[in-house]
């Protein structure tokens, strides 16, 4: 069976049941590795989300009710059950960064990406969003893209960063 990804983008269409099962197996089907599995699925899916179909496979493979997987997916803020961009551009909005004018960084990315906060670019490459503190208050305001954190941002630097991700695709 190929997973039906619903209204999802093309990246997700190549992500199949086999890929989900492989990730579950990588973690030995252990229930306590559920968070790690779901984070991996999000990343590997190319759509930064865990669709219902994939959650159902995880639930079946590790022997949990789907409702329990759903509970986890909705509890932790890093998860989404709706497709997002391949790269999440996350701007820290916590007090130290906000003081250092993180709103201006949001504006820089909005301009560079041509989307508003909370939206995804039409090419499904970027979703611009807020995040809680990422522990980089010494270089705030910061943006986090994937595992990389960028601080001391200027419009030029933002443009450079965004282009480096565009070039990867």
């Amino acid at each position: 069976m190929t997973v039906q990804p619903g209204q999802c983008n093309c990246a997700a269409e190549s992500f199949t049941e086999r890929d989900v099962v492989a990730i579950v197996e990588k973690y030995g089907r252990e229930q306590d590795q559920l968070l790690a599995m779901l984070l991996d699925i999000q990343e590997a899916s190319g759509s930064s989300c865990v669709l219902r179909e994939w959650a159902a496979i995880v639930a079946r493979e590790i022997g949990l009710p789907l409702s329990k997987v759903f509970e986890v997916l909705t509890f932790y803020s890093m998860f989404s059950t709706e497709p997002r961009g391949r790269y999440l551009v996350e701007i820290c909005k916590s007090a130290p960064c906000k003081m250092c004018k993180s709103d201006e960084v949001v504006a820089m990315f909005e301009k560079e990406l041509g989307i508003k906060l909370g939206k995804t670019t039409p090419d499904k490459l970027f979703t611009l969003m807020h995040t809680s503190c990422v522990g980089a208050c010494d270089i705030g305001p910061v943006a986090k893209i994937g595992e990389d954190v960028y601080g001391d941002l200027t419009p030029e630097k933002v443009s450079e960063i965004v282009n480096s991700y565009r070039e990867k695709n």
Partner: peptide
């Protein structure tokens, strides 16, 4: 396992999977 708690804070609710 039909009903569960989901979400958090003001969105916290009792619901079904998805």
């Amino acid at each position: 396992g039909a009903i569960t708690t989901a979400n958090r804070s003001m969105s916290y609710d009792v619901t079904t999977a998805f």
